[in-house]
Design a protein around this nucleic acid. Structure first.
Length: 596
DNA sequence: GCCGTTTTCGGCCCGACTGTTTTCAGTCG
């Protein structure tokens, strides 16, 4: 549909590299799959388009990416310049199937995909579903009734999440489009509305609003952007397109005097809008996307603030607009003062190249500093994650290393930490003596996802009872659009957090956002202390703090609920048992204050 | 195919779990 020459996205390059890895895996090629995966990861976590990087820095710049050498760099260059990759096509001809689609089904890997293709001709998810429903899969070697059921469940889950996109994947793209619109002449205002503005963890489509002197020109620009795959419609006030990445994006041109009303209307949520309109009605007013009216006279509408004010409400931040009590609270002037996007001072989950991270401790420190953080905790994986994890000896070595590094740093502190595995029985896979020497002990579940609710809860609570366990990382273990959380009684986790002084994490990694918004709200109500961090595995991930803070805001959290809004010494003092130089603060912890 | 304050060649890719199986292949982190 679009006539502009297509620029391949980082996501598409990464996807092809990953599919190459899968195809090499099918052939039992040693080592190479991991190399391609690493390269895919590097491309994916780039903060600029790879085409731009190539243009600016040439092949050399590509080769400098971590995990990308001469051979893969050449392939990336070919792919970006020609839009095709012969090496990929050669491999793909042998197993011409939808690798990314099939591979997205939990428990289905390259080897099984190959068998399914060769024995049953399965190429797509639909083929797979048919084969499973006909009971054809159970008779395949190394498959059985259970694997057939598991496949069907996996497909079911995938279907439910289809048409949804991660906020973290969508926001950078839509912000970029927003910036380009802002630069058009005659464009006076641009804003992202809809669920993206509310920072929902996944979104179905995107909405942009503009005020423009020449709406036609804006629409022309919008429908011919290189990202556009298909134009659903193009009119004077509204155009709608499908983007190559799959999501629909709408653009609306609104009158300047209706800006606030329109922004409110198109930000939603629908339920929030209905409640606002009801409130307007009660006051003899009418609210729509053009303004707030008494009779025919507009009494508000230019800004959102004046709309809320005219309705007798405090301004309600977009993240709260879900009709879940925010209107009543705003009416009573009792909205919490949400934690602000600039208020988190330290990042508490950071992986480095000591384990599965892409960058060194120094690189992570440097990047965190540039972003204005005052401290980070290095929390590499431990032992039981066998491929990558540090054992106690290695952990101690890293501690010494960090001590030395801290000696050289001014105005920034690197905390010694770890992401310690919770074993099946709730014990930790690093000894207490070693743990006691760390500044920050994060504990996390990485195995046995399918225990019963009772067993899973008991296991995690037991781990929280360890006197050295400071923070429970990604408490529910979900992977958005991919994997359900494990079955755990969150009420009991909150109770255990209060009882033991264990802090719960809001993991800002866009696929996790764990605790999720609703859990944050319950935790806050219970008085549980939280931290917000990024789970960064590369310097580019340190930006994910935004998504963590957005999730905290959606959960009605204030700065007081979030321990790492404190400077480092006070933060450490707030951890279980207090740490180091900060003993006097210890008492303040246990007794949570209640708000609202 | 990548990488190098012990290597420019020779390591890297471990271990637990699941579901299929009487000894193991595939997946996941």
């Amino acid at each position: 549909m679009s006539r502009t020459k297509r620029v391949i996205t980082n996501g598409e390059v990464a996807r092809m590299l990953r599919e190459i890895a899968m195809m090499l895996e099918m052939e039992n090629v040693p080592f190479k799959p991991r190399a391609y995966e690493k390269a895919a990861y590097a491309v994916e976590s780039l903060s600029e388009p790879i085409a731009e990087l190539l243009e600016k820095g040439g092949e050399r710049a590509i080769e400098e990416l971590p995990g990308v050498g001469k051979s893969i760099a050449e392939k990336i260059v070919t792919l970006v310049r020609t839009g095709r990759l012969p090496y990929y096509e050669e491999l793909h001809a042998k197993v011409p199937v939808d690798l990314s689609g099939l591979g997205a089904i939990e428990g289905l890997g390259p080897k099984n995909i190959k068998v399914l293709y060769e024995k049953l001709g399965v190429r797509t998810i639909e083929d797979l579903e048919n084969a499973a429903r006909l009971g054809k899969i159970r008779s395949l070697p190394h498959f059985g009734e259970k694997s057939e059921q598991k496949i069907l469940r996996g497909i079911e889950f995938l279907k439910r999440s289809q048409g949804r996109f991660l906020l973290g994947a969508v926001l950078p793209l839509v912000r970029d489009i927003e910036r380009r619109l802002e630069r058009l002449s005659g464009v006076r205002r641009v804003a992202i509305a809809g669920s993206i503005r509310r920072c929902k963890e996944t979104v179905g489509d995107g909405d942009l609003l503009v005020v423009a002197d020449d709406p036609e020109a804006v629409m022309d620009f919008f429908v011919s952007m290189p990202e556009v795959q298909y134009v659903h419609g193009k009119g004077h006030t509204k155009s709608s397109v499908k983007l190559h990445m799959g999501m629909d994006l709408d653009l609306r041109v609104v009158p300047a005097q209706s800006w606030g009303a329109a922004l409110s209307y198109f930000t939603g949520s629908k339920a929030h809008n209905v409640a606002l309109r009801r409130l307007a009605m009660e006051r003899g007013l009418k609210l729509n996307e053009y303004g707030l009216f008494r009779g025919d006279r507009a009494i508000a509408g230019q800004t959102e603030e004046e709309v809320y004010e005219a309705l007798g409400l405090e301004f309600i931040p977009p993240e709260l607009r879900e009709d879940s009590g925010e209107i009543e609270a705003a009416r009573q002037g009792k909205l919490p003062k949400l934690i602000d996007y600039g208020e988190v001072k330290g990042d508490l989950q950071v992986q480095t190249d000591w384990t599965d991270g892409a960058h060194s401790i120094e690189e992570m420190v440097e990047a965190a500093r540039r972003l204005g953080r005052e401290y980070i905790a290095i929390t590499d994986h431990t032992r039981a994650l066998a491929m990558v994890g540090l054992d106690a000896a290695k952990l101690r070595e890293q501690m010494r290393y960090i001590d030395q590094l801290n000696g050289k740093l001014r105005g920034f502190r690197v905390l010694k930490g770890a992401e310690v595995n919770i074993d099946r029985d709730g014990s930790l896979d690093i000894d207490d003596e070693t743990l006691s020497q760390l500044d920050v002990v994060g504990i996390a579940v990485h195995s046995h996802f399918h225990l019963s609710r009772a067993e899973q809860t008991r296991r995690i609570v037991r781990a929280m009872e360890n006197p050295h366990a400071d923070i429970l990382f990604h408490p529910t273990g979900r992977a958005l659009l991919k994997r359900e959380p494990y079955d755990v009684d969150m009420e009991e986790i909150f109770a255990a957090a209060l009882r033991t002084g264990t802090v719960l994490e809001i993991d800002g990694y866009p696929e996790r956002l764990d605790l999720r918004d609703e859990h944050v709200r319950k935790a806050v109500e219970a008085g549980v202390k939280l931290v917000i961090d990024t789970d960064a595995h590369s310097v580019h991930h340190l930006d994910y703090l935004f998504f963590g803070i957005a999730t905290a805001r959606r959960g009605w959290a204030t700065a007081a609920d979030v321990l790492n809004t404190l400077p480092v010494e006070k933060f450490l003092a707030g951890l279980k048992g207090g740490r180091e130089s900060a003993k006097p603060e210890r008492k303040k912890l246990g007794a949570p204050k209640r708000r609202r």
